[in-house]
Amino acid sequence: MINFRYHVVSLTAVFLALAIGLVVGTAALNGPVADSLKENVNALRKDNQQMRQTVNSLQKELDMEEDFAAETAPLILPGKLTGRRVLVVSLSTGREHTEGVVKMLQLAGANVTGRIDIQDKFISPDSATNNNLLELAVTAARPNSVPTGNLPGNGHGVETSSALLASVLLDRPAGSPPVTDADRKVVLQTYATAGYLTSENNKVAGPAEAVVLVTGQPYVDKDSAKKDESVVKIAEQFDHNGALVVGGMGSAGGNVVAVVRGDPVLSQTISTVDNANTVQGQVVTALALVQQLTEKKAGQYGVGDNAAGGLLPKLPQ
């Protein structure tokens, strides 16, 4: 029979073995293994410092490029859009750089007839929103000068309302009845009251001949695909009524810049700039509009891989 003394001796031997193992393991780590770990940590620390220096250098270079673009803009743009009537339409994704786009258009001499800020509610895929937009376009907001036969009849609220807005904010086709300033104001007021857009004093100084649509990166929520599709429909309807340049941010995913560039039909009539969030891109946005109005030519510009036109349009001297 195993007695209590045997158990004590056995347990003592086990704990002694564990203690010896800890001592030996610690000694081993304090040798070559520890030295190797320290070398790896030091190497990673140096790599991190070098990366920080590279990032700081690139940021400084980008800031200098922005300054260069801002300083050269007054030499490039003045007079390029003198007498041209331009409407600026912005979406929430491009709101932050809309002011910069407007500034460059005005520097080029454009008469900015107005600025319309489309709210996210306008592109919501909710069925109630669709029905409300359709009702506004067909009855509540539509002036007599825009017959319902001139609007899309497919029941898509965003598309129909975009067509109505384009009809009253841009030049009318030859032979069509003109839209009065009073009618134009009523249309804007109706959509603004319903929360679909905002416009300073709900006033636009007459019809425009061209539009700059300022957007940003694609939406990322669960309804992103439908929202991006609605933005494309807005662009299509304004393109039907006048020259159109999309000043965007990025050219991947489902944003309107990417869609236009991937569409062989839309890319023939709609110009895109994929870096309009920068001063360089804002200058190019104005130049792309010059090309649209003077050469009747669309181009895809910026820094994206699908910018077939390069960094900026090659305008005739």
Rank of each mutant, 00 (worst) to 15 (best):
D171R: 11
A27R: 14
R184E: 13
L165A: 03
N241K: 09
I116S: 00
A258E: 01
S36N: 05
P178S: 13
A27Q: 14
L134Y: 06
G247W: 00
G157L: 05
V265R: 06
S251W: 03
T160R: 06
D263T: 07
T193G: 11
S90I: 03
V179R: 02
K226C: 00
P177V: 05
V24Y: 10
L188F: 12
K227A: 01
G310P: 15
A17S: 15
Q291G: 02
D221S: 02
E236I: 09
A182M: 06
S92F: 04
T180Y: 02
R115K: 15
G153P: 08
A140V: 11
G83R: 02
T148S: 10
T98I: 03
Q291C: 02
V259Q: 10
G250V: 03
T129C: 04
L134G: 06
V231N: 05
F122K: 05
L44K: 03
I2L: 13
G304S: 15
L107A: 10
A307M: 10
N277V: 08
N241A: 12
T82L: 12
D274I: 01
L293H: 00
A288W: 14
S124R: 07
G216L: 12
P316I: 11
Q268D: 10
D221I: 05
I123A: 07
A163K: 00
G250R: 03
H7E: 07
D120L: 06
T98M: 05
N56A: 14
A73H: 02
L136M: 14
A28R: 14
V187Y: 03
G262C: 12
V23I: 15
T26E: 01
L134V: 03
L197D: 08
V23N: 08
P313S: 09
V214Q: 06
N130I: 08
G254L: 01
T113E: 06
P78C: 07
Q291V: 00
D183W: 09
V256C: 02
L16N: 00
L312A: 15
L197G: 09
L266D: 10
L188A: 10
G262N: 13
V246R: 00
A128Y: 05
L105R: 02
N241C: 03
T294G: 12
V9H: 07
S251K: 04
V204L: 11
L244A: 00
T294A: 13
S176Q: 09
A288Q: 12
M51R: 03
G25M: 09
T193R: 09
L169H: 08
S90R: 04
G262K: 06
V257Y: 02
L37Y: 06
T12I: 07
N40P: 02
P264H: 04
D263Y: 03
E159W: 04
T12V: 09
Q106V: 05
A17G: 14
D67G: 13
I123H: 01
S124G: 11
N202A: 07
S145E: 14
E96M: 01
Q292R: 15
A163N: 08
G248A: 10
L289Q: 04
N277S: 13
